[in-house]
Each structure stands twice: as C-alpha cells, then as structure tokens.
C-alpha cells in the first residue's frame, strides 16, 4: 500500500510541469524515504533527477517500494483540474496497476478524485557519479530563465564560461553575437537575489539553448538555481525544493567543432 498526502499539492503539479517537455512516459519510484524520478529524454542528452522527501508530506506510507508508470501528458491534463490551494492525495495498491489521485479543498469543500491507469515502463537507470565540480554557481532562477530565453534570438548554442570575471553566457548566430555576464553579487539583503561563484578553475562548455529552456520550466519550484560545471562533463542545473528535495537536470555538452 502506498499513500501520500501533500498539503501544498501545487508542488507536485510544478514538478510534473518541470519535466513534461523532456519525457513522455516516466516511472515515479516510491520508497519509505521519498518519491523519486530518474529519466532521460529520448535523445539521451539530458537527464532529469527528482527527489521529494517523505518529510514534505503530511502523511506518507509506503509498505513496499514500487514504481508508478505514468504518461505525463495524461497526468498533466488531470493536474490542470487541481486548484492552487488544493491538498493532493496519492494512493496505490502494491500491485500498482492504477493510481488514485484526490484534490481536496477545505475552503470550497470540494473533493475531486481520479483513477489513472498505470503502465509498465522499462527504464534504463544511469549511474550518475557523485563528482566534485570545478565551478559551482548559485543565482536567481528567474535571472537564469531570462538569460537563456533572451539568448535564443542570437543562436541555438549557448557557451557558458566561468572565469574570474564571472559567469558568461554567449550565443552566436547569423545576426551576430550576444554575451551576458553575471558577476558575483551578494549586496542584496535577500539571499535569493545573490549570485555566488565558487570557482576552482575556469570552465567553458557549449550547450543547446533548446534544452536549457526546457529546464527553466522548473523556475516556479525555486527562487534560486545552482549550476555546476567541470571540463568535458555534463552540466548540472539544480532547483532545490526548500529543504525537501530537488529537481536536477544533467545536460551533455556539445562537442567542439
């Protein structure tokens, strides 16, 4: 038996929104500790890793680890019917052939319930090593979203370079070149406005802007985003969900021409 109740159901809706443009069918793995997802996009250049701790839930019971195989377009349609302040309840039997979803709202007194057929999804799990990265940058997630959205008018590829100067995003195309430099900035009283750059050695890597833009769908989940880079390794783009979990994206760099 799996049963979980999340007072702020909107968090789960935002998680679904943050991955649905990258993958269609996905397993949500339930254990006694957490709900988690690990999946790759069909081109195998990006990986999403999500974790939401059992402590995020008001009630969490998972007798036996199970995988809920979901079709995200269908899940997304159901979540469109969830109100902003609704509590979400998930339930599944150990056989896990269907998932019950309930959206409750005490104020309006409404209870919506849905039964969703589950699928058996064959998932390849990647062994992601725990690496010490050469550069780690924390910045406002809204600023990152604006930069990768704006640079799309210049080209398809974004060069991200971290140097002593700061963190530079560059794109080149037919009309010319654009560079946006973020310097370290800890002047604001609000910590979520800070830009912190922790650099052991300079790193410069190229990435597809299309993917970086997919990742910014997670912006509503977190005021800050953490970027981690090492030469020749996939970039990590992490959106922490309070102290309760995260959505992390890994994107393979482009090969040098």
């Amino acid at each position: 038996m799996f049963e979980a109740r999340l007072a702020n159901g909107n968090i789960f809706k935002m998680i679904v929104e943050s991955i649905r443009e990258l993958v269609v069918d996905v397993n949500i793995d339930c254990s006694t500790e957490e709900l988690s997802i690990q999946c790759m996009d069909s081109a195998h250049v990006a990986l999403v890793s999500m974790s939401l701790s059992q402590s995020a839930f008001d009630h969490f019971r998972c007798d036996r680890s199970l995988s809920l195989g979901l079709n995200l377009p269908n899940v997304s349609k159901i979540f469109k019917m969830m109100g902003r302040d609704d509590t979400m309840v998930l339930k599944a039997e150990d056989s896990a052939d269907k998932l019950m979803l309930m959206f409750e709202n005490d104020k309006s007194g409404t209870i919506a319930d849905f039964e969703l057929k589950l699928m058996a999804i064959e998932a390849e799990q990647l062994g992601v090593p725990d690496t010490a990265y050469k550069c780690s940058i924390s910045m406002p997630s809204s600023e990152f979203q604006r930069i990768v959205r704006d640079l799309q008018v210049m080209g398809d590829t974004c060069k991200i370079s971290c140097t002593k100067e700061g963190l530079k995003f560059s794109a080149t195309g037919q009309i010319g070149t654009g560079n946006i430099l973020m310097r370290q900035n800890v002047a604001s009283e609000k910590e979520e406005d800070h830009v912190t750059i922790d650099m052991e050695e300079p790193v410069e890597l190229n990435f597809a802007l299309r993917y970086l833009n997919f990742f910014t769908k997670a912006t509503p989940l977190s005021p800050t985003v953490i970027l981690k880079m090492s030469p020749g390794l996939p970039i990590v783009i992490e959106y922490p969900i309070e102290q309760l979990g995260h959505v992390k994206y890994y994107l393979a760099p482009k090969m040098e021409e």
Binding site: A46, Q125, G127, V128, N206, L233, P234, Y250, A252, M255
Partner: peptide
C-alpha cells in the same frame, strides 16, 4: 553544426 554528446558516454547504464 556541432553535435551534442550522449549522456550514456558519461554515466553509463547501471
């Protein structure tokens, strides 16, 4: 156009 690496090359399947 420069190609994107494949993630399998970095992490490998479990």
């Amino acid at each position: 156009q420069n190609r994107q690496y494949n993630l399998d090359a970095f992490f490998g399947l479990k």
